[in-house]
């Protein structure tokens, strides 16, 4: 009985992230439009786009292989699994023992691997440019992310997200320099990983500095819909991650009642709204970087993460 209840809560989380992901994308677009004094598309536009895409015919390049056709599903599956494992409204879900933070980062790595291969599959110059730059960005963003994981798990004594959230909620946390460094680094990594300004531009298809959009340039129809959904999920995942690790207030613990879960869900949506607003303001206020400046930007994140971890190594004596 308890297992069924746990499974229900886990499914609720799964449904929540699936339902909210396009809405978050639409919300950020709306805010960005309004900051530019445009009216902007309606909030539900991403859902309509997805529906329209899956009803359209898919066009495949002549020499696209099975990698190109199956990559969207693999990307979607790994991203959804990772998103389902990050606590949104409650910690200690039934599957949370399957993967800790390191495994979640690696799952996103699998998705990126598949996407980069799909970019190379057709053999066009744009696909190659995107894949090559994506892997360059990842080669700095992934170690930076792992250094952030190190910092948090050294503090909390655990790489499980639930334990980290419980520690940050707890009394012995205090204000710590390492945590601040990790937060800044995580924000930089999140911006880079989700192809946002200033690293990449999610709104353009015809710019030579593009990364993510270049890799998916050949996709159309239902395949594109699956990839767009996965991209929205990934953005949501990073918001959940920041929310769970740095602002875990309102998170329900495992086995709490319905009311606690409802509070958790409301506070989660509030966090998403606040985070999305900040991202939109930041993106509007920033200019896109040259691609070879990105390494400096991400190098800063890596250094911050390393410094944060190092401070903890030094301050924790036996």
């Amino acid at each position: 009985m308890a297992l069924i209840y746990d499974a229900l809560v886990q499914s609720a989380q799964l449904a929540l992230v699936l339902a909210l992901a396009p809405l978050l994308t639409g919300y950020i677009r709306k805010i960005k439009a309004q900051l530019l004094r445009r009216r902007g598309p309606p909030l539900l536009q991403p859902y309509r786009d997805l529906l329209k895409l899956i009803r359209k015919e898919a066009v495949l390049a002549e020499n696209a292989s099975w990698i190109f056709r199956s990559a969207p599903y693999l990307i979607f599956a790994t991203t959804l699994t990772a998103a389902a494992l990050v606590p949104t409204f409650a910690t200690g879900l039934v599957f949370s023992s399957a993967a800790d933070l390191i495994a979640i980062v690696a799952l996103l790595g699998t998705a990126r691997f598949a996407l980069a291969l799909a970019g190379l599959d057709v053999g066009t110059s744009f696909g190659g440019i995107g894949a090559s730059r994506e892997m360059m960005i990842a080669s700095l963003a992934e170690p930076a992310m792992l250094m952030i994981v190190f910092t948090l798990s050294l503090l909390a004594g655990s790489t499980q997200l639930s334990s980290v959230a419980a520690f940050v909620q707890g009394p012995e946390i205090g204000l710590r320099v390492s945590l601040a460094m990790a937060l800044v680094a995580l924000v930089i990594v999140a911006i880079a990983e989700n192809a946002r300004i200033p690293v990449d531009n999610p709104a353009t298809h015809l710019e030579l500095t593009m990364v993510h959009e270049a890799m998916i340039l050949e996709y159309s129809g239902r395949h594109l819909a699956v990839i767009e959904m996965a991209a929205s999920l990934k953005l949501l995942l990073y918001f959940s991650l920041i929310g769970c690790m740095f602002t875990p207030w309102g998170l329900a613990t495992a086995g709490a009642g319905f009311v606690a879960y409802a509070i958790g869900a409301v506070s989660y949506v509030a966090k998403l709204a606040a985070g999305g607003f900040l991202l939109a303001v930041f993106e509007t206020a920033t200019a896109k970087m040259r691609v070879f400046r990105v390494s400096d930007f991400l190098g800063a994140a890596l250094m911050l993460g390393l410094l944060g971890a190092l401070l903890l190594f030094v301050s924790q004596s036996a």
Binding site: I54, G123, L217, R222
Partner: peptide, 27 residues
Amino acid sequence: VATAGWFGAYVIHRWASHALRRSAAWD
């Protein structure tokens, strides 16, 4: 991951258009 992939493929298979065309790369 396998279940999520199956779920995605099932939804697409069930509701999406099955039309598929081979053509020159867009690039």
